[in-house]
Design a protein around this nucleic acid. Sequence first.
DNA 1: TATCAATACGAACGATCGTACGTTGAATAT
DNA 2: ATATTCAACGTACGATCGTTCGTATTGATA
Lengths: 219, 219
Amino acid sequence: MAQAPVIDGRLARGDESRRRVLGHALDLASTEGLDGLSFGRLADASRQSKSGIATLFGSKEGLQLAAVAAAREVFAASVVEPVRATTPAGGLARVIGLAGAWLSYSRRRVFSGGCFFAATVAEFDARPGAVQDALRGALDEWEGYLSHSIRRAMASGELPGLDDAEQLAFEIAGILEAANNRSLLRGEDAPYERAARTLRERFIALGASPDAVSVLLTR
Amino acid sequence: MAQAPVIDGRLARGDESRRRVLGHALDLASTEGLDGLSFGRLADASRQSKSGIATLFGSKEGLQLAAVAAAREVFAASVVEPVRATTPAGGLARVIGLAGAWLSYSRRRVFSGGCFFAATVAEFDARPGAVQDALRGALDEWEGYLSHSIRRAMASGELPGLDDAEQLAFEIAGILEAANNRSLLRGEDAPYERAARTLRERFIALGASPDAVSVLLTR
DNA sequence: TATCAATACGAACGATCGTACGTTGAATAT
DNA sequence: ATATTCAACGTACGATCGTTCGTATTGATA
Protein backbone atom coordinates (compact mmCIF):
# COMPACT_ATOMS: atom_id res chain seq x y z
CA MET A 1 0.00 0.00 0.00
CA ALA A 2 2.79 2.41 0.83
CA GLN A 3 4.30 4.23 -2.09
CA ALA A 4 7.93 3.68 -2.92
CA PRO A 5 9.86 5.90 -0.51
CA VAL A 6 12.16 7.04 -3.29
CA ILE A 7 10.34 9.61 -5.36
CA ASP A 8 10.99 10.11 -9.02
CA GLY A 9 13.03 13.27 -9.19
CA ARG A 10 11.45 14.35 -12.43
CA LEU A 11 7.93 14.07 -11.10
CA ALA A 12 8.99 15.80 -7.90
CA ARG A 13 10.38 18.66 -9.91
CA GLY A 14 7.20 18.85 -11.95
CA ASP A 15 5.02 18.83 -8.87
CA GLU A 16 7.09 21.59 -7.36
CA SER A 17 6.71 23.65 -10.53
CA ARG A 18 2.99 23.00 -10.64
CA ARG A 19 2.66 24.00 -7.03
CA ARG A 20 4.55 27.21 -7.61
CA VAL A 21 2.57 28.15 -10.71
CA LEU A 22 -0.74 27.31 -9.03
CA GLY A 23 0.10 29.71 -6.24
CA HIS A 24 -0.06 32.54 -8.74
CA ALA A 25 -3.02 30.97 -10.52
CA LEU A 26 -5.22 30.95 -7.44
CA ASP A 27 -4.89 34.64 -6.72
CA LEU A 28 -5.28 35.45 -10.38
CA ALA A 29 -8.41 33.33 -10.72
CA SER A 30 -10.02 34.69 -7.57
CA THR A 31 -9.82 38.22 -8.96
CA GLU A 32 -10.07 37.72 -12.72
CA GLY A 33 -11.90 34.42 -12.91
CA LEU A 34 -10.84 31.05 -14.24
CA ASP A 35 -11.17 32.41 -17.75
CA GLY A 36 -8.79 35.22 -16.88
CA LEU A 37 -6.13 32.59 -16.33
CA SER A 38 -3.78 32.31 -19.28
CA PHE A 39 -0.49 30.58 -19.86
CA GLY A 40 1.08 33.85 -20.91
CA ARG A 41 0.15 35.76 -17.78
CA LEU A 42 1.15 32.91 -15.53
CA ALA A 43 4.46 32.72 -17.36
CA ASP A 44 5.15 36.36 -16.57
CA ALA A 45 4.12 35.92 -12.95
CA SER A 46 6.09 32.76 -12.28
CA ARG A 47 9.22 33.40 -14.35
CA GLN A 48 8.67 30.36 -16.48
CA SER A 49 8.11 29.91 -20.17
CA LYS A 50 4.59 29.88 -21.52
CA SER A 51 5.10 26.54 -23.23
CA GLY A 52 6.63 25.06 -20.10
CA ILE A 53 3.45 25.83 -18.19
CA ALA A 54 1.34 24.49 -21.03
CA THR A 55 3.32 21.25 -20.81
CA LEU A 56 2.73 20.96 -17.08
CA PHE A 57 -1.04 21.26 -17.30
CA GLY A 58 -1.72 19.92 -20.77
CA SER A 59 -4.45 22.35 -21.68
CA LYS A 60 -6.23 25.38 -20.38
CA GLU A 61 -8.99 23.23 -18.96
CA GLY A 62 -6.35 21.13 -17.25
CA LEU A 63 -4.98 24.26 -15.67
CA GLN A 64 -8.42 25.31 -14.53
CA LEU A 65 -9.12 21.92 -13.02
CA ALA A 66 -5.76 21.94 -11.25
CA ALA A 67 -6.56 25.39 -9.88
CA VAL A 68 -9.90 24.18 -8.54
CA ALA A 69 -8.23 21.21 -6.87
CA ALA A 70 -5.57 23.44 -5.33
CA ALA A 71 -8.18 25.92 -4.11
CA ARG A 72 -10.05 23.04 -2.53
CA GLU A 73 -6.98 22.18 -0.48
CA VAL A 74 -6.41 25.76 0.57
CA PHE A 75 -10.03 26.04 1.62
CA ALA A 76 -9.87 22.82 3.60
CA ALA A 77 -6.68 23.90 5.34
CA SER A 78 -8.04 27.38 6.07
CA VAL A 79 -11.57 26.59 7.18
CA VAL A 80 -12.38 22.96 7.79
CA GLU A 81 -9.25 21.55 9.36
CA PRO A 82 -8.74 24.25 12.01
CA VAL A 83 -12.32 23.78 13.16
CA ARG A 84 -12.00 20.02 13.20
CA ALA A 85 -8.91 20.39 15.36
CA THR A 86 -10.43 22.76 17.89
CA THR A 87 -14.05 21.72 18.28
CA PRO A 88 -15.59 18.44 19.45
CA ALA A 89 -17.26 16.31 16.81
CA GLY A 90 -21.02 16.14 16.95
CA GLY A 91 -21.58 19.42 18.75
CA LEU A 92 -23.09 22.73 17.83
CA ALA A 93 -19.72 24.33 18.52
CA ARG A 94 -18.44 22.79 15.31
CA VAL A 95 -21.23 24.27 13.23
CA ILE A 96 -20.69 27.69 14.71
CA GLY A 97 -16.96 27.27 14.33
CA LEU A 98 -17.33 26.50 10.63
CA ALA A 99 -19.35 29.64 10.03
CA GLY A 100 -16.89 31.75 11.99
CA ALA A 101 -13.88 30.24 10.23
CA TRP A 102 -15.49 30.89 6.87
CA LEU A 103 -16.03 34.54 7.71
CA SER A 104 -12.42 34.79 8.82
CA TYR A 105 -11.25 33.03 5.65
CA SER A 106 -13.06 35.52 3.49
CA ARG A 107 -12.17 38.50 5.64
CA ARG A 108 -8.46 37.68 5.76
CA ARG A 109 -8.43 37.47 1.96
CA VAL A 110 -6.82 34.07 1.89
CA PHE A 111 -7.42 34.55 -1.82
CA SER A 112 -6.83 38.12 -2.87
CA GLY A 113 -10.16 38.22 -4.68
CA GLY A 114 -12.14 36.88 -1.71
CA CYS A 115 -13.61 33.40 -1.67
CA PHE A 116 -12.26 31.52 -4.67
CA PHE A 117 -15.42 29.48 -5.06
CA ALA A 118 -17.84 32.36 -4.80
CA ALA A 119 -16.02 33.98 -7.72
CA THR A 120 -15.62 30.94 -9.92
CA VAL A 121 -18.97 29.28 -9.29
CA ALA A 122 -20.72 32.44 -10.43
CA GLU A 123 -18.53 32.37 -13.52
CA PHE A 124 -19.36 28.77 -14.44
CA ASP A 125 -22.92 28.77 -13.17
CA ALA A 126 -24.33 28.53 -16.65
CA ARG A 127 -21.46 26.76 -18.42
CA PRO A 128 -21.66 22.98 -18.24
CA GLY A 129 -18.44 21.03 -18.44
CA ALA A 130 -15.63 19.51 -16.46
CA VAL A 131 -14.82 22.73 -14.64
CA GLN A 132 -18.39 23.21 -13.54
CA ASP A 133 -18.48 19.61 -12.35
CA ALA A 134 -15.35 20.14 -10.28
CA LEU A 135 -16.73 23.31 -8.75
CA ARG A 136 -20.03 21.65 -7.97
CA GLY A 137 -18.11 18.80 -6.36
CA ALA A 138 -16.20 21.19 -4.15
CA LEU A 139 -19.37 22.99 -3.14
CA ASP A 140 -21.15 19.71 -2.48
CA GLU A 141 -18.32 18.66 -0.21
CA TRP A 142 -18.43 21.88 1.78
CA GLU A 143 -22.19 22.05 2.11
CA GLY A 144 -22.34 18.35 2.78
CA TYR A 145 -19.93 18.69 5.64
CA LEU A 146 -21.86 21.64 6.97
CA SER A 147 -25.14 19.73 6.76
CA HIS A 148 -23.56 16.70 8.37
CA SER A 149 -22.28 18.79 11.28
CA ILE A 150 -25.69 20.37 11.72
CA ARG A 151 -27.37 16.97 11.68
CA ARG A 152 -25.09 15.71 14.41
CA ALA A 153 -25.72 18.80 16.50
CA MET A 154 -29.44 18.20 16.06
CA ALA A 155 -29.02 14.60 17.14
CA SER A 156 -27.33 15.73 20.33
CA GLY A 157 -30.27 17.99 21.09
CA GLU A 158 -28.46 21.29 20.67
CA LEU A 159 -30.80 22.72 18.05
CA PRO A 160 -34.26 21.98 19.44
CA GLY A 161 -35.94 24.51 17.16
CA LEU A 162 -34.66 23.01 13.92
CA ASP A 163 -36.19 20.23 11.83
CA ASP A 164 -34.23 20.38 8.55
CA ALA A 165 -30.44 20.42 8.50
CA GLU A 166 -30.17 21.23 4.80
CA GLN A 167 -32.40 24.21 5.30
CA LEU A 168 -30.06 25.71 7.87
CA ALA A 169 -27.02 24.88 5.77
CA PHE A 170 -28.60 26.75 2.88
CA GLU A 171 -29.22 29.77 5.04
CA ILE A 172 -25.74 29.80 6.53
CA ALA A 173 -24.02 29.41 3.17
CA GLY A 174 -26.14 32.17 1.66
CA ILE A 175 -25.39 34.62 4.44
CA LEU A 176 -21.67 33.85 4.31
CA GLU A 177 -21.51 34.43 0.57
CA ALA A 178 -23.53 37.61 0.85
CA ALA A 179 -20.96 38.97 3.30
CA ASN A 180 -18.12 37.99 0.98
CA ASN A 181 -19.72 39.61 -2.06
CA ARG A 182 -20.66 42.83 -0.37
CA SER A 183 -17.35 43.27 1.38
CA LEU A 184 -15.53 42.88 -1.92
CA LEU A 185 -17.81 45.16 -3.88
CA ARG A 186 -17.89 47.96 -1.34
CA GLY A 187 -14.45 47.51 0.19
CA GLU A 188 -15.91 47.39 3.65
CA ASP A 189 -15.68 45.25 6.72
CA ALA A 190 -19.24 45.86 7.88
CA PRO A 191 -20.88 43.00 5.93
CA TYR A 192 -19.00 40.48 8.05
CA GLU A 193 -20.50 41.93 11.20
CA ARG A 194 -23.92 41.90 9.59
CA ALA A 195 -23.49 38.24 8.71
CA ALA A 196 -22.23 37.43 12.21
CA ARG A 197 -25.23 39.17 13.73
CA THR A 198 -27.65 37.34 11.44
CA LEU A 199 -26.18 33.98 12.27
CA ARG A 200 -25.87 34.70 15.98
CA GLU A 201 -29.52 35.58 16.25
CA ARG A 202 -30.51 32.62 14.11
CA PHE A 203 -28.56 30.17 16.27
CA ILE A 204 -29.98 31.66 19.44
CA ALA A 205 -33.50 31.42 18.05
CA LEU A 206 -32.80 27.74 17.44
CA GLY A 207 -31.79 27.22 21.04
CA ALA A 208 -28.04 27.87 21.20
CA SER A 209 -26.56 29.54 24.25
CA PRO A 210 -25.46 33.18 23.82
CA ASP A 211 -21.82 32.57 24.62
CA ALA A 212 -21.59 29.62 22.26
CA VAL A 213 -22.16 31.93 19.32
CA SER A 214 -19.61 34.53 20.41
CA VAL A 215 -16.94 32.94 18.23
CA LEU A 216 -18.67 34.42 15.23
CA LEU A 217 -17.24 37.77 16.19
CA THR A 218 -13.59 36.81 16.15
CA ARG A 219 -11.47 37.71 13.23
CA MET B 1 -39.27 70.90 -21.11
CA ALA B 2 -40.79 68.65 -23.73
CA GLN B 3 -38.43 67.28 -26.35
CA ALA B 4 -38.94 68.21 -29.94
CA PRO B 5 -41.67 65.89 -31.23
CA VAL B 6 -39.74 65.28 -34.45
CA ILE B 7 -37.02 62.75 -33.74
CA ASP B 8 -33.82 62.58 -35.69
CA GLY B 9 -34.25 59.53 -37.91
CA ARG B 10 -30.57 58.70 -37.74
CA LEU B 11 -30.48 58.70 -33.97
CA ALA B 12 -33.68 56.70 -33.87
CA ARG B 13 -32.16 54.12 -36.17
CA GLY B 14 -29.05 53.97 -33.98
CA ASP B 15 -31.08 53.55 -30.82
CA GLU B 16 -33.03 50.77 -32.44
CA SER B 17 -29.81 49.03 -33.44
CA ARG B 18 -28.37 49.48 -29.97
CA ARG B 19 -31.51 48.06 -28.45
CA ARG B 20 -31.41 45.06 -30.72
CA VAL B 21 -27.74 44.34 -30.11
CA LEU B 22 -28.15 44.79 -26.36
CA GLY B 23 -30.84 42.16 -26.37
CA HIS B 24 -28.26 39.62 -27.42
CA ALA B 25 -25.64 41.17 -25.16
CA LEU B 26 -27.69 40.72 -22.01
CA ASP B 27 -28.21 37.00 -22.44
CA LEU B 28 -24.61 36.56 -23.49
CA ALA B 29 -23.30 38.48 -20.49
CA SER B 30 -25.52 36.69 -18.00
CA THR B 31 -24.05 33.35 -19.05
CA GLU B 32 -20.50 34.24 -20.11
CA GLY B 33 -19.91 37.40 -18.16
CA LEU B 34 -19.31 40.95 -19.26
CA ASP B 35 -15.83 39.95 -20.37
CA GLY B 36 -17.32 37.25 -22.54
CA LEU B 37 -18.98 39.97 -24.54
CA SER B 38 -17.15 40.73 -27.77
CA PHE B 39 -17.96 42.71 -30.84
CA GLY B 40 -17.31 39.70 -33.00
CA ARG B 41 -19.72 37.40 -31.21
CA LEU B 42 -22.38 40.07 -31.04
CA ALA B 43 -21.94 40.67 -34.75
CA ASP B 44 -22.64 37.02 -35.47
CA ALA B 45 -25.65 36.99 -33.16
CA SER B 46 -27.25 40.18 -34.42
CA ARG B 47 -26.45 39.97 -38.13
CA GLN B 48 -24.51 43.17 -38.07
CA SER B 49 -20.92 43.99 -38.86
CA LYS B 50 -18.36 43.96 -36.09
CA SER B 51 -17.22 47.48 -36.86
CA GLY B 52 -20.80 48.69 -36.96
CA ILE B 53 -21.31 47.52 -33.41
CA ALA B 54 -18.02 49.02 -32.34
CA THR B 55 -19.21 52.33 -33.75
CA LEU B 56 -22.47 52.17 -31.84
CA PHE B 57 -20.84 51.65 -28.45
CA GLY B 58 -17.47 53.29 -28.95
CA SER B 59 -15.43 50.80 -26.98
CA LYS B 60 -15.76 47.54 -25.16
CA GLU B 61 -16.20 49.34 -21.87
CA GLY B 62 -18.90 51.42 -23.50
CA LEU B 63 -20.65 48.24 -24.52
CA GLN B 64 -20.35 46.83 -21.02
CA LEU B 65 -21.75 50.01 -19.47
CA ALA B 66 -24.62 50.03 -21.94
CA ALA B 67 -25.34 46.40 -21.06
CA VAL B 68 -25.44 47.23 -17.36
CA ALA B 69 -27.81 50.12 -18.00
CA ALA B 70 -30.06 47.93 -20.14
CA ALA B 71 -30.05 45.16 -17.54
CA ARG B 72 -31.05 47.71 -14.95
CA GLU B 73 -34.13 48.55 -16.97
CA VAL B 74 -35.06 44.93 -17.49
CA PHE B 75 -34.69 44.30 -13.78
CA ALA B 76 -36.81 47.29 -12.87
CA ALA B 77 -39.51 46.25 -15.33
CA SER B 78 -39.44 42.64 -14.16
CA VAL B 79 -39.23 43.05 -10.41
CA VAL B 80 -39.76 46.53 -9.05
CA GLU B 81 -42.47 47.96 -11.25
CA PRO B 82 -44.94 45.05 -11.05
CA VAL B 83 -44.70 45.13 -7.28
CA ARG B 84 -45.14 48.88 -7.15
CA ALA B 85 -48.24 48.51 -9.29
CA THR B 86 -49.86 45.78 -7.22
CA THR B 87 -48.98 46.53 -3.59
CA PRO B 88 -49.73 49.54 -1.42
CA ALA B 89 -46.83 51.81 -0.61
CA GLY B 90 -45.59 51.69 2.95
CA GLY B 91 -46.80 48.21 3.76
CA LEU B 92 -45.15 44.92 4.49
CA ALA B 93 -46.90 43.49 1.44
CA ARG B 94 -44.53 45.47 -0.74
CA VAL B 95 -41.47 44.01 0.96
CA ILE B 96 -42.77 40.49 0.63
CA GLY B 97 -43.82 41.22 -2.93
CA LEU B 98 -40.31 42.36 -3.83
CA ALA B 99 -38.78 39.17 -2.50
CA GLY B 100 -41.34 37.05 -4.30
CA ALA B 101 -40.93 38.95 -7.55
CA TRP B 102 -37.17 38.54 -7.35
CA LEU B 103 -37.50 34.79 -6.93
CA SER B 104 -39.83 34.69 -9.89
CA TYR B 105 -37.45 36.86 -11.95
CA SER B 106 -34.59 34.47 -11.31
CA ARG B 107 -36.71 31.36 -11.68
CA ARG B 108 -38.24 32.42 -14.98
CA ARG B 109 -34.75 33.05 -16.34
CA VAL B 110 -35.52 36.53 -17.52
CA PHE B 111 -31.83 36.41 -18.33
CA SER B 112 -30.81 33.02 -19.62
CA GLY B 113 -27.89 32.88 -17.20
CA GLY B 114 -30.00 33.75 -14.15
CA CYS B 115 -29.76 37.09 -12.41
CA PHE B 116 -27.61 39.38 -14.54
CA PHE B 117 -26.25 41.22 -11.55
CA ALA B 118 -25.39 38.15 -9.50
CA ALA B 119 -23.23 36.99 -12.40
CA THR B 120 -21.55 40.27 -13.26
CA VAL B 121 -21.04 41.61 -9.75
CA ALA B 122 -19.10 38.48 -8.87
CA GLU B 123 -17.05 39.03 -11.99
CA PHE B 124 -16.16 42.64 -11.18
CA ASP B 125 -16.02 42.24 -7.42
CA ALA B 126 -12.30 42.75 -7.35
CA ARG B 127 -11.86 44.90 -10.44
CA PRO B 128 -12.22 48.62 -9.82
CA GLY B 129 -13.35 50.81 -12.69
CA ALA B 130 -16.33 52.30 -14.40
CA VAL B 131 -18.09 48.96 -14.84
CA GLN B 132 -17.76 48.12 -11.18
CA ASP B 133 -19.09 51.56 -10.30
CA ALA B 134 -22.12 51.04 -12.52
CA LEU B 135 -22.81 47.63 -11.01
CA ARG B 136 -22.43 48.97 -7.50
CA GLY B 137 -24.83 51.75 -8.38
CA ALA B 138 -27.42 49.28 -9.62
CA LEU B 139 -27.06 47.16 -6.51
CA ASP B 140 -27.26 50.23 -4.27
CA GLU B 141 -30.47 51.23 -5.98
CA TRP B 142 -32.05 47.81 -5.49
CA GLU B 143 -30.97 47.34 -1.91
CA GLY B 144 -31.79 50.93 -1.14
CA TYR B 145 -35.31 50.45 -2.39
CA LEU B 146 -35.62 47.23 -0.43
CA SER B 147 -34.37 48.92 2.75
CA HIS B 148 -36.66 51.87 2.18
CA SER B 149 -39.66 49.59 1.82
CA ILE B 150 -38.70 47.73 4.97
CA ARG B 151 -38.30 50.97 6.87
CA ARG B 152 -41.76 52.10 5.86
CA ALA B 153 -43.24 48.76 6.87
CA MET B 154 -41.53 49.14 10.23
CA ALA B 155 -42.95 52.63 10.61
CA SER B 156 -46.44 51.28 10.06
CA GLY B 157 -45.91 48.75 12.83
CA GLU B 158 -45.93 45.66 10.65
CA LEU B 159 -42.54 44.34 11.73
CA PRO B 160 -42.61 44.70 15.51
CA GLY B 161 -39.71 42.30 15.97
CA LEU B 162 -37.27 44.23 13.79
CA ASP B 163 -34.98 47.10 14.78
CA ASP B 164 -32.65 47.43 11.76
CA ALA B 165 -33.99 47.67 8.21
CA GLU B 166 -30.58 47.27 6.55
CA GLN B 167 -30.01 44.11 8.48
CA LEU B 168 -33.14 42.52 7.08
CA ALA B 169 -32.37 43.81 3.60
CA PHE B 170 -28.97 42.14 3.83
CA GLU B 171 -30.53 38.85 4.86
CA ILE B 172 -33.17 38.91 2.15
CA ALA B 173 -30.72 39.79 -0.60
CA GLY B 174 -28.35 37.07 0.54
CA ILE B 175 -31.03 34.39 0.57
CA LEU B 176 -32.32 35.43 -2.84
CA GLU B 177 -28.87 35.27 -4.39
CA ALA B 178 -28.17 31.94 -2.76
CA ALA B 179 -31.28 30.51 -4.41
CA ASN B 180 -30.24 31.93 -7.78
CA ASN B 181 -26.72 30.54 -7.57
CA ARG B 182 -27.72 27.10 -6.42
CA SER B 183 -30.50 26.71 -8.90
CA LEU B 184 -28.15 27.58 -11.73
CA LEU B 185 -25.33 25.37 -10.57
CA ARG B 186 -27.48 22.32 -9.87
CA GLY B 187 -30.17 22.86 -12.47
CA GLU B 188 -32.86 22.49 -9.87
CA ASP B 189 -35.94 24.31 -8.75
CA ALA B 190 -35.66 23.33 -5.10
CA PRO B 191 -33.46 26.24 -3.97
CA TYR B 192 -36.30 28.65 -4.67
CA GLU B 193 -38.56 26.78 -2.33
CA ARG B 194 -35.81 26.74 0.28
CA ALA B 195 -35.43 30.48 -0.05
CA ALA B 196 -39.17 31.00 0.13
CA ARG B 197 -39.38 28.91 3.26
CA THR B 198 -36.51 30.78 4.89
CA LEU B 199 -38.06 34.15 4.16
CA ARG B 200 -41.54 33.06 5.12
CA GLU B 201 -40.40 31.88 8.52
CA ARG B 202 -38.30 34.97 9.00
CA PHE B 203 -41.18 37.30 8.22
CA ILE B 204 -43.48 35.40 10.51
CA ALA B 205 -40.92 35.53 13.30
CA LEU B 206 -40.89 39.30 12.82
CA GLY B 207 -44.63 39.49 13.23
CA ALA B 208 -46.08 39.11 9.74
CA SER B 209 -49.34 37.25 9.27
CA PRO B 210 -49.11 33.75 7.72
CA ASP B 211 -51.22 34.53 4.68
CA ALA B 212 -49.33 37.73 3.95
CA VAL B 213 -46.22 35.70 3.17
CA SER B 214 -47.97 33.19 0.94
CA VAL B 215 -47.05 35.20 -2.16
CA LEU B 216 -43.50 33.93 -1.80
CA LEU B 217 -44.68 30.61 -3.14
CA THR B 218 -46.07 31.84 -6.41
CA ARG B 219 -44.13 31.39 -9.56
C1' DT C 1 25.91 1.50 -21.43
C1' DA C 2 21.74 2.62 -24.08
C1' DT C 3 16.64 3.57 -23.78
C1' DC C 4 12.92 5.84 -22.20
C1' DA C 5 10.15 9.41 -19.73
C1' DA C 6 9.27 13.98 -17.99
C1' DT C 7 10.41 18.83 -17.52
C1' DA C 8 11.35 22.95 -19.92
C1' DC C 9 12.19 25.72 -23.74
C1' DG C 10 11.78 28.64 -28.25
C1' DA C 11 9.21 29.22 -32.18
C1' DA C 12 5.42 29.23 -34.84
C1' DC C 13 0.38 28.33 -36.09
C1' DG C 14 -4.38 30.03 -36.74
C1' DA C 15 -7.87 32.30 -34.26
C1' DT C 16 -9.88 36.00 -31.86
C1' DC C 17 -9.59 40.11 -29.63
C1' DG C 18 -10.13 45.62 -29.26
C1' DT C 19 -9.34 49.46 -31.89
C1' DA C 20 -8.57 52.70 -35.71
C1' DC C 21 -9.11 54.39 -40.39
C1' DG C 22 -11.41 55.61 -44.59
C1' DT C 23 -15.62 55.27 -47.16
C1' DT C 24 -20.52 55.06 -48.28
C1' DG C 25 -25.28 56.27 -47.81
C1' DA C 26 -29.04 58.43 -45.61
C1' DA C 27 -30.97 62.08 -42.82
C1' DT C 28 -30.56 66.71 -41.13
C1' DA C 29 -29.14 71.53 -41.19
C1' DT C 30 -27.71 75.67 -43.50
C1' DA D 1 -27.89 72.93 -53.30
C1' DT D 2 -24.33 72.33 -50.14
C1' DA D 3 -22.41 70.99 -45.91
C1' DT D 4 -22.75 68.35 -41.90
C1' DT D 5 -23.91 64.45 -38.93
C1' DC D 6 -24.40 59.72 -37.83
C1' DA D 7 -25.03 54.77 -38.75
C1' DA D 8 -22.82 51.08 -40.96
C1' DC D 9 -19.38 48.83 -43.46
C1' DG D 10 -14.79 46.64 -45.02
C1' DT D 11 -10.23 46.43 -43.91
C1' DA D 12 -6.28 46.30 -41.42
C1' DC D 13 -3.28 46.83 -37.21
C1' DG D 14 -0.88 44.82 -33.16
C1' DA D 15 -1.74 42.00 -29.23
C1' DT D 16 -2.95 37.98 -26.96
C1' DC D 17 -4.89 33.68 -26.90
C1' DG D 18 -4.53 28.13 -26.78
C1' DT D 19 -2.10 24.74 -28.96
C1' DT D 20 1.48 22.16 -31.44
C1' DC D 21 6.05 20.96 -32.84
C1' DG D 22 10.94 20.00 -32.46
C1' DT D 23 14.68 19.93 -29.28
C1' DA D 24 17.65 20.05 -25.25
C1' DT D 25 18.16 18.52 -20.54
C1' DT D 26 17.64 15.76 -16.68
C1' DG D 27 16.47 11.66 -14.12
C1' DA D 28 14.94 6.70 -14.08
C1' DT D 29 15.28 2.21 -16.09
C1' DA D 30 17.02 -1.76 -18.92
